[in-house]
Simulated assay, not measured.
Amino acid sequence: MRKKSLMDFQREYEKIILSDQPRKDIELAALMAEMRKQFNIPVPRNEAWEKENVKVAAMYRKLIITRTL
C-alpha cells in the first residue's frame, strides 16, 4: 500500500465531514489512526515532534477538533 500525501488526507477529511454524524466520527477515528501510523505521530502530544512536523500536526489537530465537536 502506497503512502498517502498530506493532501490525500485532506481530501479524505473533506469527504468525511460531509457524512452523517455517526459515520463521521468512525471515519475520522480511522483517518486519525492511519495518520498516527504513517507519520509516527506520538501520543501523548510531543511539542518537539510538532515543531518538526508542523503541517502534519496541524492536519491531525483539525481531525481532533472536528471529531470532538
Score class of each variant (00 low, 15 high):
Arg36Val: 09
Asn46Gln: 07
Glu27Tyr: 07
Lys15Leu: 08
Trp49Leu: 09
Trp49Cys: 08
Ile17Met: 12
Leu6Cys: 02
Ile41Phe: 03
Asn53Gln: 14
Lys3Cys: 13
Asp25Leu: 15
Ile26Glu: 05
Glu50Thr: 00
Val54Ser: 10
Met59Gly: 08
Lys55Pro: 01
Arg61Pro: 11
Phe9Leu: 05
Asp20His: 10
Leu31Asp: 02
Glu34Arg: 10
Arg11Leu: 01
Glu52Trp: 07
Lys24Ser: 05
Lys3Ile: 14
Pro42Asp: 02
Ile17Tyr: 09
Arg23Gly: 06
Leu31Pro: 00
Asp8Ala: 05
Glu12Trp: 05
Ile26His: 00
Glu52Met: 05
Leu6Met: 08
Lys15Phe: 07
Met32Pro: 00
Ala58Asn: 11
Gln38Asn: 07
Glu52Ser: 06
Pro44Cys: 09
Arg11Met: 04
Val43Asp: 11
Glu50Trp: 00
Glu14His: 13
Asn40His: 15
Val43Tyr: 15
Asp8Asn: 12
Lys3Ala: 13
Ala58His: 13
Arg11Glu: 05
Ala30Thr: 01
Leu18Arg: 02
Lys24Cys: 01
Leu18Met: 06
Glu47His: 13
Phe39Val: 07
Val56Ile: 15
Pro22Glu: 01
Lys62Ile: 05
Glu34Ala: 13
Lys55Ser: 11
Leu6Tyr: 02
Lys15Glu: 11
Pro44Leu: 09
Leu18Asp: 01
Ala33Glu: 04
Val54Arg: 12
Met35Cys: 06
Met35Thr: 06
Phe39Leu: 04
Ile65Tyr: 13
Lys3Ser: 12
Asp25His: 15
Phe9Glu: 03
Val54Ala: 13
Lys3Met: 15
Ile65Asp: 10
Glu34Tyr: 11
Ala33Ile: 01
Met32Glu: 04
Arg23Ser: 05
Gln10Trp: 07
Glu12Leu: 03
Lys51Cys: 15
Ile41Cys: 01
Pro22Leu: 01
Pro42Val: 02
Tyr13Lys: 13
Lys24His: 04
Glu50Gly: 00
Val56Cys: 11
Phe39Gln: 03
Val43Asn: 14
Ala33Asn: 03
Ile16Ala: 08
Ala57Arg: 14
Met35Pro: 03
Ser5Ile: 08
Tyr13Pro: 07
Ala29Arg: 13
Ala57Asn: 14
Lys3His: 09
Ser19Gly: 10
Glu34Asn: 12
Met59Thr: 10
Ala29Asn: 09
Glu14Gly: 04
Ile16His: 01
Pro44His: 13
